[in-house]
């Protein structure tokens, strides 16, 4: 029984982790149909923000929860104004340009901080005991944060005027523009918000994984597979795909060890896309956000 709870917690954490790293990408992809290949680097920048801030004596919680999303959101704003806004509607060019951006960020960070791991901040919470098994309290905290984050996105989309305008733009940008909505401004805000969420993810994961200039690679594959399997709906897509893929990954990792967990994840995703080319939300939950 204890084993079951411990395993369930582990899988739940895997799901939360997947949702956390893909949410920023899902927001940008769902709203703007832009696949941001620099997503992993936004996460990496969030991590570096936390490391630099704590090294300069800033409170860790403040750095993780406020500073990281703020800084990366600002970077996202600059990127959108300088680069992405010229490439709307040219999906493949956007892919390539953001890929160049990703290499650029890796290059800049390597030049500044060097290629090795910067000071790792230790996970700030103790352990939780379930029977004879122990689990990290920080992982529980992350699960909680992800739930709050998903709820926030839902409430923003559903009950604020920004959410209403954003949903309208998402459904039909030409019609929204005719009704006097500045879609360009909406895209700008969305991209920055997506970047901010990625930055938050990076900040929160920094104590667990440490930071490296090319750490984005670890996240990017999983984030893409989750978002594409989920389809275009931001919340329902991310959640359903995270649950499915995170579950498969967790169970396979438990059975065979971590080596084949990711392979199983990918394999599930490819078969899923053969059956549902537009993702889970292209087939089910069509009315959802």
């Amino acid at each position: 029984m204890d084993l079951f709870f411990s395993l369930a917690l582990q899988i739940l954490y895997g799901i939360a982790n997947l949702a956390l790293i893909s949410l920023g990408l899902a927001i940008v992809f769902g709203m703007m149909r832009v696949i941001n290949l620099a997503h992993g680097e936004f996460i990496m920048l969030g991590g570096y923000t936390v490391v630099v801030a704590t090294n300069n004596g800033v409170n860790l919680w403040f750095a993780m929860l406020i500073l990281a999303p703020l800084v990366v959101g600002l970077i996202g704003l600059i990127v959108e104004r300088c680069l992405i806004q010229w490439l709307y509607g040219r999906m493949i060019d956007t892919l390539l340009a953001t890929w160049g951006l990703s290499l650029l960020f890796i290059g800049i960070i390597t030049s500044i901080f060097g290629a090795s791991t910067s000071t790792v901040v230790s996970p700030p919470l103790g352990t939780v005991t379930i029977g004879e098994y122990t689990s990290s309290g920080y992982e529980l905290f992350l699960i909680f944060v992800v739930i709050v984050l998903l709820a926030l996105v839902y409430l923003t989309l559903k009950f604020t005027s920004l959410g209403l305008v954003a949903r309208a733009t998402m459904q039909n940008s030409d019609m929204s523009a005719c009704l006097g909505i500045s879609t360009s401004k909406i895209y700008m805000v969305t991209f920055s918000l997506g970047a901010a969420v990625s930055g938050l993810a990076g900040g929160l994961l920094a104590p667990i994984t440490g930071v490296l200039p090319n750490i984005g690679v670890i996240y990017i594959a999983k984030a893409f597979i989750t978002v594409i399997s989920g389809g275009s709906a931001i919340l329902a897509g991310t959640t359903s795909a995270s649950v499915l893929l995170g579950g498969v990954n967790g169970i396979m990792s438990y059975i065979t060890g971590p080596t084949f967990g990711e392979v199983a994840l990918l394999f599930t995703a490819i078969i899923l896309l053969r059956l549902m080319p537009t993702g889970i939300t292209g087939r089910f939950f069509r009315k959802s956000q």
Binding site: I92, L95, V217, A221, F224, I225, I228, V263, R274, P277
Partner: peptide, 27 residues
Amino acid sequence: YFIFYGKVSDVYLAVITLTVSLILYSL
């Protein structure tokens, strides 16, 4: 077979192939 017979669009194709490569990397 999975990609073309699933009629996956070109942008998805780009991301899937990239992901395959990255998963092989970590494997």
